[in-house]
Nucleic acid binder design. Structure first.
Lengths: 347, 347
DNA sequence: AACATCGTGGGTAACGTTACCCACCTCACT
DNA sequence: AGTGAGGTGGGTAACGTTACCCACGATGTT
């Protein structure tokens, strides 16, 4: 019942009959330990089951811990990114720890502070909503990579998908199927910095631009809600209530498309018979057979892998110039989008 | 570009013209600091933006960090549990950090070790697959709560759902709808300890017991795969290939039901017209309109809240006797189950 | 024979915080 | 005036690890 005292480096040193310095060297594979010494120490380590304390290590140097801030747990797209990070970290000795920031500035600040307090060697911020200034502050304190948000910084690296182009792919796909009244559901944004940096804003821009490019500027129609299932639900209801109901809805994210499909079901409609629906992200949910959602794959796995790589590079050299990785999205047509028929068009 | 040196307690002490001890007292709201001193110190803290290092704190005492091991990120049921934990931890000063264990013993061991190395004040293990002995070892090292696994221990508390009863609810529901050929997809288990402790094993037991109670012992039919979407897919294909195809499938978890629905779609079948399908967990996915999966709600949110409460209690008093919290599941009938018709029965 | 050089091991002082103890001051009470 | 109690502040030694440096002996070089 009484907690067994931790085995420390001192115990190992005594047990092996060497100095703590020697044990430390062996642990770190540092120079200056003969093979015999290494063997002796390793035997003692195994025998006592010694594991170094990350806290004590962190006080002197590295903690071998990467902190990841993610805005929420329910959006499966983030799982793809995390898989990419985990995979890249395999065998590097780094452990990834995650904390959820719940998509608002106050908790996000709290969470990132918590990661810094716990002396992470580096942090990966996924789709952060914090102010630009705040991100810079974090990046000056600890090596930082920002994923899923554009914008160039002298302090942090970024990994993002080319959202502007991706949105264009969706519009082209739907226009190619004969649709003209193609509506969009966006995540509402007013902050000028975020209008330039956030993926949702770029997707909306890409939508507008592509609509114009296809000669459909008169049909530009946007419902402004949030990137959540509820946001999709609300947005769809707004769009369905309009006098000229759209024949296709481009939801800004797969999770939004879920809400749209939910709302369609409630209204007794279905995709693609009544309305075509497309999402964005390329989550496992979209690939799920009974749903089979047309979406844009932004290669979350690769985003995560790139983020981890950039972070390790920056931990190794904090002065190297920052990089901006932009990945190309691909359209994945599935069964929620279909050619415009007389029936759908006439509504 | 050069990393700004961290503000430490010494900087604050100097800036406020007091001792580090005084600053420490103020930080911890400890006894022995006059109001004037508190004010002076707080002013200095704000001015310098001081935040204590969790690593250094951990070396002496507590880190105010709770570690959570979860088996994977894609099963939305775990998100419910985590929400419950987060909510309970609100305002306690504890931060939750998560690490994913990927459902196998080796990585699970690695991850739990990593949490211990980082001197977590306590850990919550969600549906761990580790051996009983390993769990005991962890619990002797650090306050531990095990969620989603039965079995009594002298060292760790447990929170689980009454899986045996829950499985019975599903069988009763389906039998009530007239089904007799009710099949089950289980997560394969052979280890005798796990057969007693793991929810999947208890659900399978509950299924068998309820089938017998309803006089359906001749129709007991189990596909033994895993609790993943692929497992559900595989299990469903096995069941569909049998000479006497079942009219209802009870999938051991919602994620398994996803795989079942996927396989049905592939086979050109649908639920509930051709086959009724029920899951288990009560995830947000099951509630999703276009799916509308009949399931058993195991109140993940409450499980998480209970786990956090038990953990904080144990951190406060490591010698108190362990507790086993068992929550009652409830059936949530939705649209994937329906009364047996002549058409489905005759297949 | 004198002198570098190299390989190997250990001593010591941090890192930032807190637990524990002691010193001092003020006030009230004998 | 002397004593005790209570309130307030600080000094010091840990916690477990690593970076830096120094010492020693063996080997090779002039």
């Amino acid at each position: 019942m009484t907690a067994a005292r931790r085995v420390t480096i001192v115990d190992v040193a005594r047990h092996a009959g060497v100095s703590t310095t020697a044990v430390s060297k062996v642990m770190r594979n540092a120079y200056g330990a003969s093979p015999q010494m290494q063997e002796k120490v390793r035997a003692a380590i195994d025998e006592l089951g010694y594991r170094p304390s990350a806290a004590a290590r962190g006080l002197r140097g590295k903690t071998y811990t990467i902190g990841v801030m993610l805005p929420e747990l329910r959006n499966l797209f983030f799982a793809e990114i995390l898989d990419g990070v985990t995979e890249h970290l395999q065998g590097t000795g780094y452990q990834m720890l995650m904390a959820a920031g719940s998509n608002n500035r106050a908790t996000e600040e709290q969470v990132t502070d918590a990661l810094i307090d716990r002396s992470m060697d580096g942090v990966i911020l996924i789709a952060p909503v914090s102010s630009r200034r705040r991100l810079e502050t974090i990046a000056r304190t600890v090596p930082t990579v920002v994923v899923g948000r554009h914008g160039q910084s002298a302090h942090y690296d970024t990994v993002a998908d080319d959202d502007f182009t991706g949105a264009g792919l969706v519009v082209a796909h739907l226009a190619g199927l004969g649709h003209r009244r193609i509506a969009h559901i966006e995540h509402h944004e007013t902050d000028p910095v975020r209008l330039r940096e956030m993926p949702n804003a770029l997707r909306a821009d890409g939508y507008r631009h592509a609509m114009r490019a296809h000669g459909l500027e008169d049909h530009i129609d946007i419902a402004s809600t949030t990137y959540t299932q509820d946001g999709g639900h609300l947005g769809a209801r707004q769009l369905l209530a309009r006098p000229h109901r759209p024949t296709a809805i481009f939801a800004g994210a797969d999770i939004v498309a879920m809400g749209v499909l939910d709302a369609l079901t409630e209204a007794g409609l279905s995709a693609p018979a009544d309305i075509s629906v497309a999402g964005y992200d390329g989550t496992a949910f979209a690939a799920f057979g009974p749903i089979s959602l047309t979406t844009v794959d932004q290669a979350g796995h690769q985003m995560g892998g790139n983020a981890a790589r950039l972070l390790l590079d920056r931990i190794a050299d904090r002065t190297r110039p920052t990089a901006q990785v932009k990945l190309s999205p691909t359209l994945v047509p599935r069964r929620t989008t279909a050619a415009l028929t007389d029936r759908t068009a006439s509504r």
